[in-house]
Design a protein around this nucleic acid. Structure first.
Lengths: 204, 204
DNA sequence: TGTACATCAGTGAACGCGCGTTCACTGATGTAC
DNA sequence: TGTACATCAGTGAACGCGCGTTCACTGATGTAC
């Protein structure tokens, strides 16, 4: 009755939706800490304040909950990155790095999950491989723009550059996860200064 | 009796040593495929042609076997890298990349293990953090040499450069694990050309 | 406002299963004399 | 070369445990009239 025009028709009661969200949060924390296999539904349930059966009232299986956790994280990263237009690639990637810094658990979760998904027989293998390609495509598109506005030196191979940027971000994230004192932003900026920009372009 | 002078005094019988090696190989394969938690001693034993009790005759516990698998890998990488002297950093890192390419399972194992070890409460957390710092120190030392012989541009911050090199290698490895068609060497060479060397230095 | 009814939220107990580890053991392999 | 003995290599059965999932259920929340 009091619903606004553009609002999506939600399932269940408010309390149910809140619990569902609490389960996703709890799942994120537990999966991030222990990986998919070692995190148990009992732990996740207890951490969210209910029983395993309660969790499975909201999610059909552990795997379904896991998929939801990952989807939610991707969504939030995309929101955090914002639009490429006007801002440029560099600012976008900086925001992603900043997002990681504020969401250590999520970053750890993705690191473990994508490493596990490295196995060609892992159920999420294709999805993670596609995700990796997608990241590189997005970066490549942003590089096209950057070259047009002269922010990137002219003799750069953009496909390889996109691949290297994705690799640096992922590698720095691992270093930071192992040692929180690591300054990801500083290192990334230095990479941009030294690699993407031509000589003589000066400070950022 | 027929032992040579420098030979280390080995434990057990030849057959036992061969079985032990077979268990390490099998463990490497299984841990790489599924990670530490999801790989079972039963699988590892079956793949090596014995029972779980047989495996535990050679290793006191699953964790001890896992530690041996990781130690063996590090050892082999160090062998593959060879000496820095004369060859230079670039050739050393190229050999590490090539080693990964020939040992996909080992690379996957390390990726999963180090992602899991990201958790500060993981038993191997400190060891992996130290390993990461150690890699950067080694690279840093090689960069010092490289600057002296003029292979690296003068205005480079070597600590950050070492950090970035380690990040690129790790990031490219993940991309390659997700998509075996990835040409790690080409991307790494391009990184070296564009970042480490100064402008106008030409081909490698 | 009150009542009947459908759906939702969540519980508690139980299930079958695979896990790492233990134990007592059998046979093979090497060593000493 | 033969014999006695110690150690090693490996088996087969059993253990207690925590796992994901199921089931029948109770009470709360919303909806229709």
């Amino acid at each position: 009755v009091s619903s606004t025009a553009g609002e999506a028709p939600r399932r269940g009661y408010p309390k149910g939706r809140a619990t569902r969200q609490a389960i996703v949060d709890s799942g994120t924390a537990m999966f991030a800490r222990s990986g998919y296999h070692a995190a148990s539904l009992r732990d996740i349930a207890a951490h969210a304040g209910l029983t395993t059966a309660g969790v499975l009232h909201h999610f059909a299986s552990k795997e379904e909950l896991f998929a939801e956790v990952l989807a939610r994280r991707d969504e939030r990263v995309r929101e955090a990155a914002g639009e490429a237009e006007g801002d440029g690639l560099l600012e976008q990637l900086r925001r992603v790095v900043a997002f990681d810094r504020n969401e250590r658990q999520l970053a750890a979760l993705v690191a473990v999950a994508s490493a596990e998904a490295t196995d060609p027989e892992h159920p999420a293998h294709a999805a993670f491989a596609e995700r990796s390609r997608d990241d590189q495509r997005t970066i490549r598109a942003a590089l096209d723009d950057a070259r047009r506005t002269g922010l990137v030196r002219a003799d750069l191979d953009l496909d390889t550059a996109a691949r290297l940027i994705a690799a640096v971000v992922e590698g720095l994230r691992m270093q930071w996860l192992l040692d929180p004192a690591t300054d990801m932003t500083a290192a990334f900026d230095e990479f941009v200064r030294g690699y993407l920009r031509g000589p003589g372009r000066g400070a950022i």
